[in-house]
Nucleic acid binder design. Structure first.
Lengths: 216, 216, 216, 216
DNA sequence: CATGAATGAGTATTCATTCAT
DNA sequence: TATGAATGAATACTCATTCAT
């Protein structure tokens, strides 16, 4: 009951589970539009082109849909992140990759950004129960890279790696939030803006991490 | 319906609608606890020590309560922030004050901080409609301080003040979020931890803003 | 959760709780008509002349309505029965009173008879959870009278008082069931028939209890 | 819709719709467990080891399954009862056989007994529509045995055979009900207890029927 | 004949809002 | 002003039934 146990994904064969994906994508769209609470299950169903009841063949309940969005997407992100974090590259380069990765998740997906930055937080229950573990895992990976940078003398040591990781993530999330909230003009310019902002933020962050080197 | 037309706030006579204030305070507390949607009007009423119907003597409806929180409280927050931003102090000191202010460590106004970190994301619809403008104003104030620092040569110039402002806010929000997600032990130790984390984050941020000075 | 804890009956003052009673009576009527499961909550509400939501001010849920019918009515029956069982009268006379009492509950209330004989058994869950205790108490009272009769040498001793009590009750219930199921002609003749049948059954039962006296 | 027109039972060829029988058996079991309404068609299917849809190849709908149980099983029960009632044995012996038959202690046909005690009351609507006639026939057979006993001077004449039949059935039903309500320990001890209770009840009943002989 | 994924009508329950007192 | 009992619209979820395979 407590652990998130999704409906036993019916035979992940060729196309069938394609329907689960369709529902997930539809949910991202409608959640981004009206928010999790304002969205009716039938809205998701209509958007996905299935019957209301079909939703319940693939998900436990409405909550489970939101949770699954988070878990599927963040889960994938963590997988890649794990690989990046372990790479044999300079730590600052890896930090830049992490930033690009997190933003890349949202590349051209303002809807997904909104679901993750806004909708997920509307239910403290869901956030704490299901979000926290994955979120913590994600942050720990980032923190481990920063800690490594501290050990190798590249980063200042008077900052907790976890605090830095949270701040890094929070800064990106903040950028994404304002980006998601920004008008409806979803032109490439905006995408470019997000990208550029992220780069600036990355350099600021890295300089901050290095900057204190003298007084460390 | 669309324009926010609150109940004609009965002229603040002697005890200037002392009850309206009590309801607002109560709402901030319960919204912070369980979120806007999970909170029932009767929860607010109980917390405020009034009858359900009384809420409707001071607010149009439930939405109006959240909107009023935005406007009243963020309004006050902005007022204070405006004063801080205009102070005749070094910019880095002012940035540190902003950080403390947002985290509510300043003057024990934690409730003001909660409005931003918790309530801001409660309702997608309301956030976009009423929250965004105020939020933007808030960020602009921060950005103005940073811009000033750039002008005076204290901060690097290759970072957009707005990007920096968002990142600053986002980082703080991230710290507050993980702090909120962490267990329930609301002892002073946790307060201390948040405070310390905020300081570290502040220094990292400031060093980042200064750090690039050489290549600026 | 397990114990049946009805909504805190709002002030049992003059008339207010009158509404609870109205709902209960309405429920008896509609349950008897279409059965517990086929009856919609809104049917009860309409019959009682209240709004759907009002039902939930007086009852936990639909189950609670059925349980309350049983508990209220059987509860009252047990109160009287307790007095009768303790009377200073010959045991056979007391047994006859018990029979009349049980049938009297249903006097001219074929609907109530149907609710108790049929509807209550449609949910084994409800029956076991809430019905059993009261039912057992009721049977024990009857059994105690029979046991007394055995001690005083009036009744045969080779029959368990509990078995006899169950059989007595079962026989009455059987008569009530066929009576409740019988056509729709609810004339006095039918009432008389039930009464007469009960008397016959009472004498048969009493003779049975006495009959074995010689081989006891 | 009203008249019970079952699916054209496919001509019982070799294995005469062996599957229909399996479904019926399964339904009796699960209905007895949780009641008609609480049982889902898929429960029946799982218990029978067939797919949900298969049920509809043999039955019109869920109601039809319950109706078919009535008709098939009670029909069989009545057949056996008819044979017992017509036997060339003393009436009291035949009454004892009837008792054992109804309690399912005879020939291990407990399922037949369950149909009466449990399934009969499952659906008010169906009970009235399809059950009542069969039930009446069942009672009439018992009544006929009692009437015969009265004619032959073995039983008292001041009791209506029908009343006696109902009481006999009701008493047994009462015993079975309390037996069913009692815990879950389905050991042989419980079976023995029921058997013994039934015997006691039988003798009480018979003595009651005979007992009044002197004042008849 | 058999399957079981998909359907969508049906309903208990909640909770914002009203209004008689 | 203040109350809180009453309202009833709104909606997540279930499950009997269908039908393409």
């Amino acid at each position: 009951m407590n652990a998130h146990s999704p409906k036993p994904k019916p035979k992940p064969s060729r196309a069938p589970t394609d329907k689960r994906e369709r529902i997930l994508e539809a949910a991202i769209r409608v959640f981004a539009q009206g928010g999790f609470y304002a969205t009716r299950v039938s809205d998701i169903a209509r958007e996905a082109g299935v019957a209301d009841g079909t939703i319940y063949l693939y998900f436990e309940n409405k909550d489970d849909v939101l949770i699954s969005i988070f878990q599927d997407r963040i889960g994938k992100l963590i997988e890649v992140l794990r690989e990046v974090a372990a790479r044999d590259e300079p730590v600052d380069k890896r930090v830049r990759r992490i930033i690009e990765l997190q933003l890349g998740l949202l590349e051209g997906r303002r809807d997904l950004a909104e679901v993750i930055t806004v909708n997920l937080r509307q239910s403290s229950k869901l956030l704490k129960q299901y979000g926290a573990p994955l979120f913590t895992e994600y942050l720990e990976l980032i923190a481990s890279v920063i800690a490594e940078g501290q050990k190798s003398g590249v980063f200042r040591k008077d900052v907790s790696p976890r605090v830095a990781a949270r701040a890094l993530w929070g800064g990106l999330d903040g950028l994404a939030l304002t980006w998601a909230l920004g008008g409806n003009s979803d032109d490439a310019a905006r995408d470019g803006a997000l990208h550029k902002a992220a780069q600036q933020w990355g350099e600021l962050f890295l300089d901050g991490l290095r900057g204190g080197m003298d007084h460390a």
